[in-house]
Computed example of a mutant assay.
Amino acid sequence: MKITYKNCETLNYPDFNYCTNCSQKVNLHRINAHEIFHEIVHYFTHADKGIFQLIKELALKSGIVAKEYINGKRKKYFSPLNFFLLIAAIFVFISNIPKEEVPLDKQKENTELNSITNTAQKEKMIHLYERKEKVNHFIRKYSNLMAMMALPLIAFFFWLFYKKENYNYTEHLVAGMYMLGFCILINTLVILPISLLFHLSPNYNTLFFLLFQLAYFTVFYYRFLNKTSKLQFAKAFGVSAFGIICWGIVSGFTINAYISSGFWGIFS
Rank of each mutant, 00 (worst) to 15 (best):
R140T: 13
K163P: 01
W159V: 01
P80T: 12
P103H: 05
Y258P: 06
A155N: 05
T117K: 15
A257Q: 14
E133K: 13
Q107C: 01
F157R: 04
L160V: 08
L185Y: 01
L196Y: 06
M146Q: 08
T170D: 00
A241Y: 04
V174E: 08
Q121N: 13
K227A: 08
P80D: 07
I64R: 09
L207M: 10
K163G: 00
P193V: 07
N82D: 14
S268M: 10
E109I: 06
K2S: 11
N114L: 15
Q24F: 05
G238N: 05
A236P: 02
K122W: 02
K230Y: 10
N96Y: 13
S261K: 02
N12H: 11
T170N: 11
E68K: 11
L113F: 11
I64V: 11
F198M: 08
F242D: 03
C19K: 05
I191G: 01
E112C: 00
F212M: 07
R140S: 15
L210M: 07
I31N: 01
M179N: 15
T45I: 07
K108M: 12
E109W: 00
H172M: 11
V26W: 01
N21S: 12
W247V: 07
F138N: 03
L113Q: 08
L160S: 11
T10K: 12
K2L: 09
L28V: 12
G265K: 08
L231V: 14
Q53W: 10
G262Q: 11
S62P: 03
E112A: 02
Y69H: 09
Y69C: 06
T254D: 02
A215Y: 04
L86C: 03
V190L: 14
Q24H: 12
L211S: 11
T10W: 04
K73A: 08
H172V: 00
F253R: 04
A241N: 04
T218N: 06
L11F: 12
K134W: 15
I116H: 05
Y216C: 00
K141V: 02
W264Y: 13
W264N: 15
V41G: 05
N136V: 10
K108Y: 07
R30F: 06
S62N: 13
F91V: 09
